[in-house]
Design a protein around this nucleic acid. Structure first.
Lengths: 182, 182
DNA sequence: TCGTGTTTTCAGAAATTTCTGAAAATTATA
DNA sequence: TATAATTTTCAGAAATTTCTGAAAACACGA
């Protein structure tokens, strides 16, 4: 690795975490180097900085693009592709969550829907569990859809409030009968 | 695999998803077979049902216990250990999220804290990014802590409400100056 | 069209992860 | 304490994932 010392430990760490976040070590390192570099980088620079092959960089960039975490940028008079993060830290975090939901819950949800469709009886143990899991995932899914559409600042307020929301809900019940959930 | 047909496809799927959920294929299958079996199972039964070695089952059970997703149960007059899910579907889901936070965000958070501690200047590009990520993860972390302590039914209400919470918050601002967030 | 700079692909190599099964360790019973 | 039942460990084998680098494909200007 040919990285400035200050970056090396960060990049190594993001590599180690990479697999936990849904991609592999090299892709994690590539993402880190793109996020922490002020200048946009081209594939050769990334290969040099991380000391990996050009082919590997090409594959990694494709992966990061499929996650919509990076974007191409062109410099005039330069035929190379330069890469930059696809938004600020907040947008990147939401994007990771969004992609992970797609890859981690959608497939299970469609299997479970299938099971519920073509099962004869639905009062046996397995069916009951299938339905419980299905309902939980559907609920989570629509909640995520919903909050994903919120403006960042509203979302931030919500996060800061945390379980305090429970108290606000109580307040709502005390002072109003009107249903505000729609 | 020596599974009833109805279970086979579910178990295979949970195996495929396993790695995305933080463990490996076999561990995912083991978890599925434990969750979808009404009777508590012992290690030999699991090995037989899934067609894998006894040693592998032992390692997988240890993994699932480290995630606090299964618990041991003893039958009187039987020296074997029997395993059962460590709660209902709702509790299991929260437990998965909780463990994943521990494994996926805590380590990064402590690296970032370290960076912020011993860096000389803090107005360069890297420092700014480090701080942004740090703040986001801290915020997420305390939010999660917070809602994790809520009663399931309150949590469910919150999920169902989704971004409707935003409307409730507006309502709060319109009708009250009192800070209910503490 | 050709030539040059660039990116992508992919077969095989390398690295990593997972799995087996026999031996060791543990635990309960008599 | 000895025996038997059970679980755990772990070295090596098997399976899977990741990486390399050369060749192919692509894109643009002349």
């Amino acid at each position: 690795m040919n990285l400035p010392a200050e970056l090396e430990s960060l990049v190594v760490h993001f590599g180690e975490m990479g697999s936990r976040w849904g991609f592999n070590r090299t892709v994690g390192q590539m993402f880190a180097v793109i996020v922490f570099s002020e200048a946009h980088l081209n594939a050769d620079q990334i290969a040099n900085l991380l000391g990996i092959s050009r082919g590997n960089v090409s594959m990694g960039l494709k992966e990061l693009q499929s996650w919509q975490l990076i974007r191409v940028h062109h410099k005039s008079g330069d035929r190379k592709d330069y890469f930059k993060p696809a938004g600020d830290i907040w947008e990147l975090a939401l994007q990771v969550l969004s992609e992970r939901r797609k890859r981690e819950v959608e497939p299970t949800l469609s299997i479970l829907r299938g099971q519920l469709m073509n099962e004869s009886s639905n009062d046996n143990f397995v069916s009951v569990k299938v339905e419980e899991i299905h309902n939980l995932l559907e609920l989570f899914n629509s909640w995520f859809d919903d909050i994903h559409r919120m403006k960042p600042e509203s979302l931030m307020t919500l996060l800061k409030l945390g379980s305090g929301v429970g108290k606000v809900l109580d307040l709502k019940h005390r002072i109003s009968k009107k249903d505000v959930s729609q």
